[in-house]
C-alpha cells in the first residue's frame, strides 16, 4: 500500500496521520477524523454535498486526495457551528427560512453560503440578486427543497454578514 504522512488542520485542530495516497479528502475527513458532517452525494464533483473550505476557498472534498491537503487549513460544517454549540448566523438564517428537508445536501449548502459570507466580510464582491444567488449555488444539488427557501436563507445570511 502506498502511504504518506500528512498534517492537516481541521476546524482549528491539527491532525497528523498516515494515509493511503489514493484516499480522498472526503473519506479522510469522514472516516479517519470522524467528521461525518461532510456528505457524499455523487463522488464525482457535481452535487456539492462534500463542500468544505480549504485555505479560505470553497472546494469539493470528493475531488481531492487527502495528501493534496497536506499542510492545509480546512473548515467543515462541524467547524462552522459556534464553540458553545450555538448555530452560526448562516445556520440560523437557513433554519429561519426552513431551507431544508432531509438534510443530506445541507452541509454543502451551509459551507457554500458560509464561504460567500466570509468573502463578503473580507470585502469581496458577492452575489446580490436572487438570480445571481441561484447561479452561485448551482453547483449544489438539493433534491428536496426546490431551492427557494435555501435562497431565502442565503439572502438573509448575506444581508447580515457585514464587512469587518
Amino acid at each position: 500500500m502506498n502511504t504518506r504522512e500528512i498534517t492537516v488542520t481541521v476546524n482549528g485542530r491539527r491532525h497528523t496521520r498516515t494515509v493511503e495516497v489514493r484516499r480522498t479528502l472526503a473519506d479522510f475527513l469522514r472516516e479517519d477524523l470522524g467528521l461525518t458532517g461532510t456528505h457524499l452525494g455523487c463522488e464525482h464533483g457535481v452535487c456539492g454535498a462534500c463542500t468544505v473550505i480549504i485555505d479560505g476557498v470553497t472546494a469539493r472534498s470528493c475531488l481531492q486526495l487527502a495528501v493534496q491537503a497536506d499542510g492545509a487549513e480546512i473548515t467543515t460544517v462541524e467547524g462552522v457551528t459556534l464553540p458553545d454549540g450555538e448555530l452560526h448566523p448562516v445556520q440560523e438564517a437557513l433554519r429561519d427560512s426552513h431551507a431544508f428537508q432531509c438534510g443530506f445536501c445541507t452541509p454543502g449548502f451551509v459551507m457554500a453560503i458560509y464561504g460567500m459570507c466570509e468573502e463578503k466580510k473580507a470585502g469581496k464582491p458577492v452575489p446580490c440578486s436572487r438570480a445571481e444567488l441561484r447561479e452561485e449555488l448551482s453547483g449544489n444539488i438539493c433534491r428536496c427543497s426546490g431551492y427557494q427557501q435555501i435562497i431565502d436563507g442565503a439572502e438573509a445570511a448575506l444581508a447580515a454578514a457585514k464587512e469587518a
Binding site: 461525518t36 458532517g37 456528505h39 437557513l94 438534510g103 443530506f104
Partner: peptide, 13 residues
Amino acid sequence: DRKILTGTGRYVD
C-alpha cells in the same frame, strides 16, 4: 434543523 445544519445527523454512511 439543529442536527442537519451542524452536520451531527446520523445517516447510514
